[in-house]
Structures are given as C-alpha cells and as structure tokens.
Amino acid sequence: MTYQHSQPTRRVLESLVPVICPPEAMELGLGADIVDHVALTMSSVPPLFRRGLVLGLATYDLTAMAWPPARGRRAHQLPPDLAERWWERWHHGLTPVQRELAKAVAQLLKFGCYEHPVMLERLGYTPAAWIDQVKRRRLQVYGDDIRKAEAAVLAPDPLRPPIRKKELG
C-alpha cells in the first residue's frame, strides 16, 4: 500500500535523524531522503504496526512537553542535546512499549540511512558491479552445463509415467 507521512510524523522523524544517524548523514543533506525512505518501508509493514508507529511517534513528540528540561516544547522542537536525552529516556524507558518504539524508529532510520546510494558509495559497497561481473563469467565458463540443467527442469521422469485421467473418477 502507498503510505505518506503526515506533517507531524515527518517533523518528528526529521528531528530524530541527527540523533540516530551518523553525523555525515546530516552533513550530506540526506535527512529528507532518509525520512522518505522510512515512508517507503512503512508502506510494506502490517497496517497495525504502521498505525502503532504513527501513534507512538505522536506520543513521543507530545509527552516531551511534560518533561521539565523541555520546558513545554515538543520533542521535534528540542535542541540537539535535549533531543538526545529525550530519545535515550525512551530507549531505556520504563515500559516495553517505549523501548520497542524507540528501537523500531531507530531501525527504520538506520535502514533508510544505509540504503541511501550516497552512503553506500562512501562505504565502497558496489554489489551491482560484482553481480554483473560474475553473471557474465558464469555464462562464459559454464554455458553448456547451464543449458543442460535448464532442459532437465522440464524433462519427463522415466520412473513415473503419467496416469490416465479417467483414473481420477
């Protein structure tokens, strides 16, 4: 299904990128892309899980207002040091719901960050080039064997002759 973040959800997620992702993600201006990627991932998770995440993010944002150091501000409005501390409070929260939410949100952001082509390039991760190379080599070296194996997929089994349809009744 197609899922798009609401503005409040997007704001909270964007505020969490510097907390969760490595500093270069922000330096390279990848924050919005990472949050877009989170939307893509959320489009494929079970609807109940998705609704829980959205509700959890809203709760995360709003409940910061009751935290004295926040001085009435929502989580997405906190300066970096307080944003870190607020996230840590959830990550090590008293309830499993808090902890699991913090973990799930962090996982989504980290996945989005390290699926970004710019970040993958920085790691030197080049699987497509490798796949092209070995795919060509396989066909060059083993072409005959591969064709034989493909033919065998469809070859009749001499040990099991077909039954006649009328036997089925």
């Binding site: 980290k110 996945f111 390290y114």
Partner: peptide
C-alpha cells in the same frame, strides 16, 4: 548482509 540491514540491527547510533 547488506549495510542497511546491518545498521538496522546494530545497537549503535549516531557517530
């Protein structure tokens, strides 16, 4: 495992 999945399951964050 690809980087995205490794990062996702890592306990580390930030720097």
């Amino acid at each position: 495992i690809p980087p995205g999945v490794i990062a996702m399951t890592a306990h580390e964050r930030g720097a």
